[in-house]
Write a protein that binds this DNA or RNA. Structure first.
Lengths: 131, 131
DNA sequence: CTGTGTGCAAACACTTTGCAGGTGT
DNA sequence: ACACCTGCAAAGTGTTTGCACACAG
């Protein structure tokens, strides 16, 4: 998936800054916060700009938040709309999508409407367990 | 459930401040943040104290966080250890436990260990839908 | 050319920390 | 009496906003 294409699909103008940030998401397997992104850009991009970009990416559905546990909000690229788990490792701090695990078998009470969902498991990841 | 008893069960010393805060949790059906609690105490209690109390209640397992979406962390009393849903209404902002809905039917990948979990649905609650 | 994106600076919201004095056991 | 709780003040993060200039379409 190409960054230009992705921005265009979501009707966003194509700027260098947005492509850089999108690139970082495309290359990351874990959830990213403003700070994570700023670091990877060697802080050459203003924080306000990154926050604004994250907001727009979120609103247009390019990314979605996976966790805010404890501190900054972390985001990942939006995958298929299947409900799936996110996993936060308390040792390394990384947040990953367990996209192959689908959640099912629940019904909301009468009168409730679902817009979004976020299923987070907190624990120790495979890599940290094998150390 | 009595506040004194509850604090004692968790080996916490019984102070007026803690009983007040615990009372508020016992009487609330929705998740509460520091600000929510401070307001209900007419801001007679220092913010730092409330934050410290929330931290201790969380560490001892009296309460657990249900959402931080957008802003302050909200907590509810810990119920049975069954995994259940939390629901955040985007209209009224309230967060409630859907304690009668149990989540099941998923397995973590090999090597992953679960410590905690937090399943949040975001949408419109029954009351807000009927307005 | 015109609207939108960006950097800078300031402000705001949420949370934590050190210290001195007060309270629970 | 001693440990722990609390208030106060300050500081530390995370995030948003107004404005002037720069850039994309």
């Amino acid at each position: 998936m190409n960054t230009r294409q992705l921005l265009d699909n979501h009707k966003l103008s194509i700027t260098e800054g947005r492509m850089n940030i999108l690139d970082i998401f495309l290359q990351s397997k874990v959830g990213l916060s403003e700070t994570d992104i700023g670091d990877k850009l060697y802080r050459k991009t203003d924080r306000a700009t990154i926050y604004r970009t994250l907001k727009i990416f979120r609103e247009t559905g390019i990314i979605h938040p996976v966790s805010t546990e404890g501190s900054a909000t972390k985001y990942v690229l939006k995958k298929e709309p299947i409900e799936h788990l996110h996993f936060k490792c308390t040792k390394c701090g990384d947040i990953t999508c367990l996209a192959d695990i689908e959640i099912s078998g629940y019904n909301l009470p009468l009168g409730y409407t679902k817009l979004e969902s976020n299923f987070l498991i907190i624990g120790i990841c495979n890599e940290c367990n094998n150390q």
